[in-house]
Design a protein around this nucleic acid. Structure first.
Lengths: 126, 126, 126, 126
DNA sequence: GTGGTCTAGACCACA
DNA sequence: GTGGTCTAGACCACA
């Protein structure tokens, strides 16, 4: 469900944050659904509970999940996109960087468009 | 020329690497052109020379620039894109992450395509 | 009557304690009045009876309510304010914290005075 | 500078967050100023560096401070109050709770207004 | 059972 | 020097 790469330079907790958001966007986790408890996830990923807790805290901060102490953690029943201008700028900046990197790998505009199309196909699940 | 944000979580040396590559892709730096020495760049950016050195080392490793001892540092006369499969996978992964993040900000497929178009317009410089 | 938010970080039993005290201060519950039994309240709020029990125990400890075995639970016929210095200090400290937090949200002294006025209007119920 | 009460039910890291914000509001810490490093603060408060780090992370998330890895942590040069409606509601709610609590301690509207005045005198430093 | 906090201690990249 | 991440393990309140 979640692919964690311990050797990645990206911190484990960030990989968990991104992985859960990916599962939600793909519809694998649905709004209101209970997600694995900190301890369960800790066992599943053989990661420390503190690390899972940090990821869940970040997801809650982003209003992606909701925590009810003593009951568990749930996918937010609805996510209201708040067009946070800072985060949108960051998205644009990352896109520019990735396009420049792609250029140096010999990938042109057409290639990028194809990759973006593939990603949307995967997300929209057809 | 190079916008360095000390407060960013991205290391300064990486910002320099990316910034120089962006300048080259945009044609601001052209193949064979001499780029500022480590000391000059250090003064220009008010950054530690070690940090600049680290950035230049990384750019050399990527064959983006070349250092000729006693002469200076130059943009490589030709960059042969080596379609490094690992790096291509990484590009795809980053693109997927950025698209998921964008989704949570309320940006859809059309918005992403527009942003990508804007970036190519900026790079191709017309 | 009582608005319980399961997602709040404030424990449910504390929300019940505060909610009942609010109802009494507003005059919705009057001295001597019978309040719902633990079981009734449990059904009304769809909360665990243990949780209600804990709230009622705390309210009794504060002499806000009284339980007469076999008869039920009642709003204390008179509440003698005991100017517990510790609790007064805590009130002052919480007020200071909330004012600082308000400052960071752009709320100034006038705004705070208005909010306090509004709250007293609501409590005094006219 | 920071009064930490280990016996308080309020977590240490939250006490640090609130304490630093109080110092800034009072003008003891000024914009741009370096605040003690995680390790220094850890020694000063005899608290674990992780706990300090957690407090600093929260302050950074609130844009109260800025971190430059390798350089230190600084009071944000300017704090732009963003009237986050959620947080304003929370302020109002806390004010209501504190006023009800005060009522039970025998403090009336006049008393509350005096306390608020005292707090502003302390903050504005005259 | 649930998540939240904290300590101790290690390791790391960065400036 | 700086902060960031992670593990191991303990303790706690809450439902």
């Amino acid at each position: 469900m979640l692919n964690i790469d311990a050797r990645s330079s990206k911190p484990i907790y960030e990989q968990i944050v991104d992985g859960i958001k990916e599962n939600i966007v793909k519809g694998i986790f649905v709004p209101g659904q209970k997600i694995p408890s900190v301890r369960e996830m800790s066992r599943m990923l053989t990661a420390n509970p503190n690390t899972i807790g940090k990821a869940y805290l970040e997801l809650e901060r982003q209003k992606v999940i909701e925590t009810i102490v003593g009951r568990g953690t749930f996918v937010s029943s609805q996510y209201i996109p708040n067009a946070d201008e800072d985060r949108i700028q960051k998205v644009k900046k990352t896109l520019k960087e990735v396009i420049i990197e792609a250029h140096y790998l010999g990938l042109n505009r057409t290639n990028i468009n194809e990759i973006v199309d593939d990603i949307y196909s995967e997300i929209e699940g057809k």
